[in-house]
Amino acid sequence: MKELEQIRTMYQHKNKDIHNLDTWNEVKNLFLGKNGYVTSCMKEIKNLDPKDRKSFGEAVNQLKNEITVLLDKKKVELENLEIEEKIKSMPRLDLTIPTQEECGSLHPVTIVQQKLIDVFRSMGFAVEDGNEIETEYNNFEAVNIPKHHPARDMQDTFYLNNGQLLKTHTSASQNRIMKKYGAPLKVIFPGRCFRNEELDASHENTFFQMEGMMIDKDVSISNLIYFMKTMLSEVFGKEVNVRLRPGFFPFVEPGFELDCSCPYCGGKGCKVCKQSGWIELCPCGMIHPNVLTMGGINPEEYQGFAFGLGLSRLVMMTYGIDDIRHLNGKDLKVLEQTKVK
């Protein structure tokens, strides 16, 4: 029994010397190892007088448990110390230092166009693509602009050597889409349009429009107002008002100029709306019966509305771009500003 007391005292001394895992292992071996003090004592039990065996055995076991607990505790301490050391040796970084996150950019037209497409798709409109090179028929005749019609004056057309032309408006796709899908129809078709004119800050020969049509048995001017108002409110991210004014476009009857209450000043008047409180955004109207007929749709049975949104203009408003030439300018210093998100 005295022997056990000596071992206990010895351990208490040794315990203080444990500084790392190596010494911990040494101490563990010294007491609990194969030939350790405690292990040796346990081996002794069988040689003792049977009457002493029980009490000695209990005492040895108690000592073993005591030392095990102390060793385990020590190990946790050591491990904690080690982790603390690791943390100390870790570099401390300054994340407030500016870094250059690399990212390409999407063209501003792409971004605004996608937003519009999303809005219209969410309202059940399909999206169609169109050609850029069109026939005179599709661009003019099929949208009720016969040869020598004064409306052809409004559009300076790029003609091609084979008699085709670069489409002057997205309406050039109306006929093809109507013939392809028939009525009822709910579709938008964004596209690039071309006008043969000199460039300046507000005139481009290549620009984007977004056209839409909705044709069914009882589509009304009320519906047109609803869809335009809803669409523009979604685009600008706030409730806007719209108003219709008469506008002459041969492919619609009645034809309207759609004004949108200026989303930048709320209609009070600002630079964007030229102090008028309204922005002229979108020629539209009820599709002319002749246009429906040429598209293979019976105007006695179906009506519809069509609209053409000046996408390039909307893009310029959205980003505050003051010169339309930037859009086709291919200058990455300009374009990189519309990073993808």
């Binding site: 690399e102 990212c103 390409g104 950019s105 999407l106 063209h107 037209v109 792409t110 996608q114 497409i117 798709r121 059940g124 409109f125 399909a126 999206v127 169609e128 693509d129 899908y181 579709v187 078709f189 964004p190 020969n205 290549t206 859009l327 086709n328 291919k330 990455l332 374009l335 990189e336 990073k339 993808v340």
Partner: peptide, 29 residues
Amino acid sequence: LRIGTDIVREYDIKYMLAQRYNWHEIHSY
């Protein structure tokens, strides 16, 4: 909407090129 998803697929391509490869979309004549 059964018709015309080509333009919508185009967005996936454009986003990938700009986001994954850091290239810039341009518009030209």
